[in-house]
């Protein structure tokens, strides 16, 4: 392959072009393979969205869209069904709020500790250990909530709590997303250049002043992204709420009672013997679409936020 001295000169031109053509072909081939892989995933996504929308449209042929967004009753499986998405949304909102209330402070403080205070050795094993938490199957969390957290709370401070309740599910969900928030925030905090910290130290700032007033603001966009990622996971979380929150579709703000989230409803219908094409069957697509739109909005908000507040450092 090597072009040696004899092959150079006018007679070498042909060589060059042939080799160039062969290489050109290989370049094109690899590009096509790569593009195909990229398009497969994009097309799959579009396919899913298309099916969702198609079935959702079917659903709204039979159910008023106004009723869907305003009714305060959800009784999809009953003889005279009512479809108030607010009921399921409230369940999702309640468990998510509880989860974030747990995960944000704990995750953020853990991230600050890991990045700013932990020794490199400690950080080296503590961060992977934290990330392992994220790998625990959520069904395990669900039974942990049902068989450990709920009895514990009932026996100690909240005897009035029902067996299936939003609080336990939310708390355990919070524990579940701590690693997400902590890990992503830690990455953001760690990515703040050392020069910025040193700049603060050089002015006589203490470690705490530097961490809270220089490093955290600089990492804000990353922290917000981490939080939104956590919220997305909480909103989309299924098994914990299906197992521990009770699947009772009621509009309530009381965390001690049972609730049904949108995901839990989908599981309930999908795992039952609902005939394909029936109205009840179609509801899961309507709920799925709502869920999809919610997560989409969260992702867009996070994207916009990250873009607007990104620090050049």
């Amino acid at each position: 392959m090597a072009v040696n001295a004899e092959q150079r000169g006018p007679s070498g031109e042909g060589m060059w072009q042939r080799e160039s053509r062969a290489r050109h072909f290989r370049e094109r081939a690899i590009k096509i393979v790569l593009a195909a892989c990229a398009y497969v995933s994009v097309l799959t996504t579009f396919g899913i969205v298309f099916v969702l929308l198609f079935e959702t449209v079917n659903f709204f042929r039979e159910v008023s869209i106004v009723e869907f967004f305003t009714s305060t009753t959800w009784s999809a499986a009953f003889a005279n069904p009512q479809f108030g998405i607010l009921v399921l949304a409230s369940g999702t909102l309640l468990t998510t709020l509880i989860a974030i209330a747990v995960a944000l402070p704990v995750g953020l403080l853990a991230a600050i500790f890991l990045s700013e205070y932990a020794s490199p050795g400690l950080r080296r094993w503590l961060k992977p250990a934290l990330e392992i938490l994220a790998g625990v199957p959520t069904i395990v969390y669900g039974y942990f909530a049902l068989t450990f957290v709920t009895p514990l709370l009932r026996e100690t401070i909240l005897p009035s709590m029902t067996i299936f309740n939003a609080l336990s599910a939310g708390l355990v969900m919070g524990v579940m997303i701590i690693p997400t928030i902590a890990s992503v925030s830690e990455d953001a905090i760690h990515a703040v250049p050392r020069s910025l910290r040193e700049g603060a130290y050089a002015l006589g700032a203490t470690k705490r002043e530097t961490a809270t007033r220089i490093v955290l603001p600089a990492a804000l966009s990353g922290i917000v992204a981490a939080t939104i990622l956590g919220i997305s996971r909480a909103v989309g979380e299924t098994m914990i709420v299906a197992v521990a929150a009770g699947n009772l579709a009621q509009l309530t703000a009381n965390p001690l009672e049972s609730v049904q989230t949108m995901t839990a409803f989908i599981v309930q219908v999908a795992s039952g013997d609902t005939p394909t094409g029936s109205l009840t069957y179609n509801t899961i697509f309507a709920v799925g679409s709502t869920l999809f739109v919610m997560t989409l909005i969260l992702n867009i908000v996070s994207y916009v936020f990250v873009r607007r507040f990104r620090e050049a450092y």
Binding site: S195, L196, E198, G199, L203, I214
Partner: peptide, 15 residues
């Protein structure tokens, strides 16, 4: 460090 300030190689203004 308050008595002995420092300026670094790369400009590092705060955000």
């Amino acid at each position: 460090r308050r008595r002995i300030g420092m300026v670094f190689q790369k400009p590092n203004p705060f955000s």
